[in-house]
Nucleic acid binder design. Structure first.
Lengths: 328, 328
DNA sequence: CTGTTAGCGCCTTCAT
DNA sequence: ATGAAGGCGCTAACAG
C-alpha cells in the first residue's frame, strides 16, 4: 500500500510538500509539483479518502438509507437527491435495510461515516433516529414525521392523496368501494387510508367494509394476492384504491387473468405515479407524489442544516390525481 | 464531537481500556466495562468509523457502482450481491454515475473508500478500471469483459440470448423481423445483436434490414419512440426483438396506442426478465438473465479475492427464453 | 486486567 | 517555496 510518504520520498520532498502538490495548491513550484505527480504516477499512488476525512472532519457525503435499493418508487426521489447534493458539491452513497441485519445502515447511522443522512425505510426505529441525530449530524426522514432537533421531514401529503382517490370515486358515482392497504407498520399507508376514510365520511358514505379492505405489503405479488382474495370472494366493488402502484400492477394482473375488465367492471386507482404506471395496460390512474421535488427538498434540508441555515422542520408536498385508463 | 478519549477520561480509565470495553473484549473486567459503557452513554459517544478503518486497513464494505441507482433491472442483482456480501460479514454501499460528473463513483474508485468494487455502468472507462484495480482492490465488472489481474467479470451470455430470440422467431415462421437495439457504446447490446444476426445467418436468413433496426437508449421512452418510428414507416415486421425489457414496455405502449395488436399483428421479445415483465399486458416474452445469481457470483468473486482465493476470472451465465403473451 | 506507547495516512500551522 | 512536527480518533502490541 503506497502512501503519501512513499511519494514524498521518491520525489525527494517532504510529506507536507507532497500533500500540497497532490492537492493542486498554488503554494508549490511547478517543477516540484511535477516531480511529485510523476512519483505518484510511478508508484500508482491512491490517496486514502478516509484518512483525509478523518483529518478534515467531514466526508462531503450524505448517506441515503432505503428499504430496498432498487424499488422503482425510489427512482425519481434518488434523482432529486443526487442532483441537489451534487450542486452543493456533496456525494451520495446509498444502502438498504433489506437483510434482517441492518448492517451497513447501522454503520452509517452510528459511526459518523457520512455528514448526514436521508432515510426512507420504516425498518429504522424512531428512537434510533432521535438518538442519532445531532447538531453535526442532521437526519431527514421521508417516511414519517418526527419532531426533534436536528431531525427534519419531507413527505407527500398522503392524507390528501387518499382523500383525492375517494373523492374521485364518489364523484364518478361509485358506491361499492374497496381498498388494498400497505404494511400495517407503514405510516404512509395509514395516512392514505385515513384520508380515504375521511372523505367517505365527509360525503356521508359508509367506510370501506372489511371484506373489501385487504392488507398488502407494497409488493407486486402482494397486490396480486390481495386482488385474488377479492376475486374469490365473488362480489367485487366497482372502485378499488390500491395504496401503491406496485401492488396495483399485481392487482391488474390478477384481474386480467380472472377476466375482470378494468375499468369497465372495476376502476383501479394506485398511488405514487411510478414511471411505469403509464406503460402498463390499462395505464394506471394514480395519485402522484412529487417524488423528484421531495428528494431535492430533502437534500436541501440536510445541506442547509450543515451550513448553519436552519431549514424548515417539516414539509408536506401536495399530491395530485393523474387520470389514466384504469378508472372511469 | 466526543471521542473515545473523552469517554476514557470520564470513566477514569486509559484509552486502550475504553477501546477494549467498547469492542466487547473479554479482556476487561465487567465492572470497568460497565463504567465505560455508562460514560459513553452519558457523553452520547459515537465511534468514528473512518478512524477505525484507517487503523484496521479495511472497511469491510464493498462499493457498487451503477449507472442508475434505481433501474428496475438492477433489483435482483443488488439482492444477490447484498445477500452474499452479508453472509461474509461485508456491507454494501452503492452509488450511481448518473450526473455528468462521476463524483462519488470516482471517490470509491480512487480513494480506497471500500475494499473492492462491483461495477455495472458503462460510464466508467476500461482504462480507469485497469488503473484502479490491484491486489488489494479487486474489481468486478458486470457490463463488459476485461482481462487484467485483479479484474474479474460476470456477465450473462448476451450473444446466446440474442441467438435464442432470433431462433424463436425463425422456428415460429416469422420472416419479417425487426430489432430495437441499445445504446451504441453498450457492449451488452452489441453482443445481443451479434447473437441475433448470427442466428439469422445460421438459418440462411437475411440480416435485419436497416429500416427495421432502430437504435434505442434502454429507456422506456426510448423504446416508445423507436416503436413510433417503426409504426410511422408503415410496413411493420411480424417479429420484433427489443434489447431490453424497459424499452419493450415503451414499445408495447406505442403499439397499443397505434392499434397494433400484440402478439396477433406483431410478436415482441424483450431482454432481461425484469420483475414487471410478467405484470404488463400483454405479459412480455423475454430473454431472462439470471440476475440474482450474477449478483451473487460477483460478490463471491470480490470476497474470494480478498481472502486470497483467486476466483475464476470470467464467468458467463446462461440466458433463457421465457415465453409469455407478447409473442406467438 | 489495565496503562503506555506507537502508529494508520493525511493535512496544516509554524518555522525556515 | 519547502520542511518538521503535531494530531485527527482509533486499535494493538507490549509492559506492568
Amino acid at each position: 500500500m503506497t502512501t503519501i510518504k512513499d511519494v514524498a520520498k521518491r520525489a525527494g520532498v517532504a510529506v507536507s510538500t507532497a500533500s500540497l502538490a497532490l492537492n493542486q495548491s498554488e503554494r508549490v513550484s511547478p517543477s516540484t509539483a511535477e516531480k511529485v505527480m510523476k512519483a505518484a504516477q510511478e508508484l500508482q499512488y491512491r490517496k486514502n479518502g478516509w484518512a483525509r476525512d478523518l483529518k478534515m472532519q467531514k466526508t462531503q457525503m450524505i448517506g441515503l438509507i432505503l428499504h430496498d435499493l432498487s424499488g422503482p418508487f425510489y427512482a425519481s426521489i434518488i434523482k432529486g437527491i443526487e442532483q441537489t447534493l451534487l450542486s452543493y458539491g456533496y456525494g451520495l452513497i446509498a444502502c438498504s435495510t433489506l437483510g434482517e441485519t441492518l448492517g451497513t445502515a447501522e454503520r452509517f447511522l452510528h459511526e459518523r461515516r457520512v455528514d448526514g443522512v436521508i432515510i426512507f425505510s420504516s425498518d429504522i426505529k424512531d428512537q434510533t433516529l432521535i438518538d442519532v441525530s445531532r447538531e453535526d449530524f442532521p437526519v431527514v426522514v421521508m417516511d414519517r414525521v418526527l419532531s426533534h432537533p436536528y431531525l427534519y421531514s419531507v413527505t407527500a401529503h398522503n392524507h390528501q392523496g387518499g382523500y383525492q382517490a375517494a373523492e374521485y370515486f364518489i364523484k364518478r358515482g361509485h358506491k361499492a368501494i374497496g381498498y388494498i392497504s400497505g404494511p400495517a407498520n407503514n405510516l404512509d399507508s395509514q395516512l392514505r387510508l385515513k384520508g380515504f376514510s375521511q372523505c367517505l365520511a365527509d360525503y356521508h358514505f359508509a367506510d370501506v367494509p372489511t371484506k373489501w379492505h385487504i392488507r398488502g405489503d407494497y409488493s407486486q405479488q402482494g397486490g396480486y394476492q390481495a386482488a385474488r382474495l377479492l376475486i374469490e370472494q365473488g362480489n367485487l366493488p366497482t372502485g378499488l384504491f390500491v395504496s401503491n402502484d406496485e401492488m396495483a400492477f399485481g392487482a391488474l394482473k390478477a384481474f386480467a387473468e380472472a377476466g375482470v375488465r378494468v375499468p369497465e367492471d372495476l376502476s383501479v386507482i394506485g398511488f405514487d405515479d411510478v414511471e411505469l404506471s403509464q406503460y402498463v395496460r390499462p395505464s394506471l390512474t394514480t395519485i402522484k407524489q412529487p417524488k423528484f421535488e421531495m428528494g431535492s427538498l430533502a437534500a436541501h434540508k440536510v445541506i442547509q442544516h450543515l451550513q448553519g441555515d436552519a431549514p424548515k422542520e417539516h414539509s408536506v408536498l401536495p399530491t395530485e390525481l393523474i387520470e389514466r385508463e384504469s378508472s372511469v
